[in-house]
Design a binder for these strands. Structure first.
Lengths: 203, 203, 203, 203
DNA sequence: TATGAATGAGTGTTCATTCAT
DNA sequence: GATGAATGAACACTCATTCAT
C-alpha cells in the first residue's frame, strides 16, 4: 500500500518561503534538542506553519535533517584551495587546509556533532557522509601520490590509507576539541596536526 | 527523581545466574538490533526470564548496556605491554600496540560500533568512554615526552595533543575498517599506521 | 453545517470538460483503489486538474461517487423488456431478464462490488439503492400478481415478498459469481436461476 | 522491521477477565458506532482498562472484531438440526432451518449488519465468511442431491448452484428485513421463503 | 526473587477541505 | 474557473516501567 507522495520543490514564492522557514526552524530545533528528541511538531511550530505543511516538502525527520545538512555543507565547502590562494608549497597548503577545516568545524560545531550522531542512527545519512569523506580522501591520496612521485614524500606510505588516516585524524580532533569540548588552544591544535602531517609524509 | 529502588548485586546463586543470563542476552540483542531498536522485553525474553526481572538488577537500558560494555572492555584490555612482552624498542612497541588494538577491535567490531552509537546518545556512557580514552592518551603522552627527553622524538610536538591525535587516528581507522567495513588489508593497515606514528614522532 | 457553496452544473465548455474528466478519473481511481482507499487528490491528479477544482463540481467523495454511479446506472438500465422484445411468455421473459441483468453485472463487476461496499458505508448511497431496488421489486410483484390472477402462478405466494426474495437471490448470485468470483459457468447460472424462478412461481 | 509480537491467550485469571471485558466492550462499541467509526481507545475505555492493554490480546481493530465475530458465531450456530429434532420430512426441515436462521439473525441483527459491512472492508474477514458460507452451501447441496436421488426433488437443478442461490436468498432477505428494516411480518417471511424452497425443489 | 499483566504518555502522519492568487 | 499551498483534527500503537501475586 505504498502511497508514494511526491514532495515538491515549491513553485510559488510562498512555497519557497515556507520551505525555507521549515529548514531554518529545523536547524534551530535540531541544535537545541538533538536529533532523537526533536519533534516534527516543534519544527513546524517554530516555523510558524501547520504541522501538515512539513509533509508538503519533506517525507519526515530524516529528509528534513538532510535538507539542513545540505544547507550547512554548502556553507562549509571551500574547494580549490590551491587555485583560490595561489599557494603551492605543500606545507603551506596543509596548514591552510587544516586551519580552514577546523575553523569551519568550530563555527558549526553543534551541527557537526549532530552529523556524527545521526550517522550512527540513520543508514542513509551515514552513506552520504561516507561517500563525501571518500571523495575527500581520494583527493588527498592523489596529492600524496604526486608528492611521492616528485620524491618529496615518504615513498613507503600507501597513499590512500595514509590519506584516510590523516584526514580521519583531523576530523577526529575537531570533534574532540569542538564537540566534546576537550580544552585545547586552537593554534596549538593546528600546529600539532600540521606537524604530524608533515612528519608523517616526510616533507 | 525519587529512585528509591536499590539494584542489588545478586546474593543467591539463582540471582547470579539470572543476572548473567540477562547480560548475555543483552549482548545478543544489542548486537542484533542496535541500541535504539533493542527492546528490554526482547532482552528478558532472550534471557528466558520475565520482563520485570530485568529491573531487579538494572535500572534500565543504559545500565544494562553499561554492564555489557564493562564485560567486553574487560575482555579487551591488555595493559602493560612493555612489562608483558619485554619489548623496549619504541618502534616495536608501537607495532605491538597498534596490532593488538586493531585485532581486538576487529574481533568485537559489532559492539565497538555500538559503543560509538551509544556515545552519541547517552551522556553517561560518553563520559565514561572519554575518561577511559583520556587515561590512554595520558599514558601515550608520557611515553612521547620520555622519547623527546631522550632526544629520540621530535621535540617540537606537544606530547598530549600528539598522543590524542595519533590515538584518535588509530581508533578512527579501526572504526572505518571494521565497522564501516571499508575494505583494506589488515597488515597494510597496521604497517601504514605504524609508519605514520614513527614518522610523526620522528623516530 | 453552513454549506453555502453551490456546486454548479458547468456552463462553459471548459467546465464541461473538467467535470467529465473528473468523473472519468474517479471511476478509474475507485475501481483501482476501492472507495475507502481512494483519495480525492488521486482523482484530481488522474484527471489532470488541481485538487481544488474538484470542489467546483462536487461536495466531496460521496458526491463524486454518486456521479460515477449515475453514469454507470444509465449505461446499465434496460427497461421495458416486454415492450422492447415483444416477448410475452413469462418463462421467456424471466430468462431474458435474468440473462440481461447478469450480463450487465458481469460487465461492470468492479463497480457493482463497489456499490455494495459503499452501501455499507454511506447512508445516502444506501438509501438511493434501496429505493431503486424497491421500485424493481414492485414491478416484479405486479407481474407475479398478474400471473396469479391468471391462475398461472402459485396463489399462495405473497407477491411482494416473493418478488423481493427472488430478485434478491439473483443479485446475490451475481455478486457471488462476478465480484467474489466463485467459479460457475455463466449459462448454468442463468438456467439454474431461471428454473428456480419458474418452479418457485409454479409456472 | 517486522517486530511481530505474540498475542497471548491469557494465562492468569486476571488476564481472562481483561480479555473478556475487552471483547464485550468491543461488541458494545462496534454495535454503537459501526466498524469504521469505532475507536480502539473507546473500546479500552468501555472495558475500563488502559489503552495499551488491548494490544496485549489483539493486534488491532481487525483482530478484536474477529474475536467478537467468533463469539457471536458460536452463539448462533445450531448444527445437526435433523439429529437434534428427529425431524426427517424435508419440508419440515426447511421450515425449521429457515425459522431458526431468521430468528438468530434477527436477534443479532446489529452485528449481522456489521459483518456485512466489515466483509466489504476487510479482506481477511471476508475470506473467513465465504468459507463458512461455502461449507453451509455444500451441506445443503448434499441434501438436495439426496432428495434428487430419491426422486423427491427436481432432477434438473444443479445441486450446488441451487443450494447457493436458495441459501443466498434467505440470508439476503434476513438482511433486508432485519438490518435494512424493510417492514415485513416474520411469519409471512418464513412461510414465503419456505414455499419458494419447496416449490423450487419441486418437493 | 520471579512473574507477567497492566499502565499510559507521547507523536508522526494523512488527507479532505479551504482560499488567496 | 483553475490553481496548489496551507490547514489541523484525529488516533493508533509502542514499550519502559510498575506492582500485586
Amino acid at each position: 500500500m505504498a502511497k508514494t507522495e511526491v514532495r515538491v520543490t515549491p513553485r510559488s514564492a510562498r512555497g519557497i518561503r515556507t520551505r525555507s522557514a521549515l529548514v531554518a526552524a529545523a536547524r534551530v530545533v535540531f541544535e537545541r534538542d538533538g536529533y532523537l528528541d526533536a519533534r516534527l511538531s516543534d519544527i513546524s511550530a517554530e516555523a510558524g506553519v501547520a504541522s501538515g505543511s512539513l509533509y508538503t516538502y519533506f517525507e519526515g525527520k530524516e529528509e528534513i535533517f538532510q535538507a539542513v545538512a545540505e544547507q550547512v555543507t554548502e556553507e562549509m565547502v571551500h574547494p580549490h584551495l590551491r587555485a583560490r590562494t595561489g599557494v603551492t608549497d605543500p606545507r603551506e597548503l596543509i596548514d591552510l587546509a587544516n586551519r580552514e577545516y577546523l575553523r569551519s568545524y568550530k563555527k558549526n560545531a553543534k551541527l557537526m556533532g549532530l552529523f556524527e550522531q545521526v550517522s550512527q542512527i540513520d543508514e542513509n545519512f551515514r552513506k552520504v557522509r561516507i561517500e563525501r569523506a571518500d571523495a575527500f580522501v581520494q583527493r588527498n591520496a592523489k596529492m600524496i601520490r604526486g608528492l611521492q612521485e616528485q620524491g618529496l614524500a615518504d615513498a613507503e606510505l600507501d597513499p590512500v590509507l595514509t590519506a584516510h588516516a590523516l584526514s580521519g585524524m583531523v576530523s577526529r580532533m575537531a570533534y574532540v576539541a569542538f564537540v566534546q569540548k576537550t580544552p585545547m588552544p586552537f593554534e596549538q591544535l593546528v600546529l600539532t596536526l600540521n606537524r604530524i602531517w608533515i612528519n608523517a609524509l616526510g616533507l
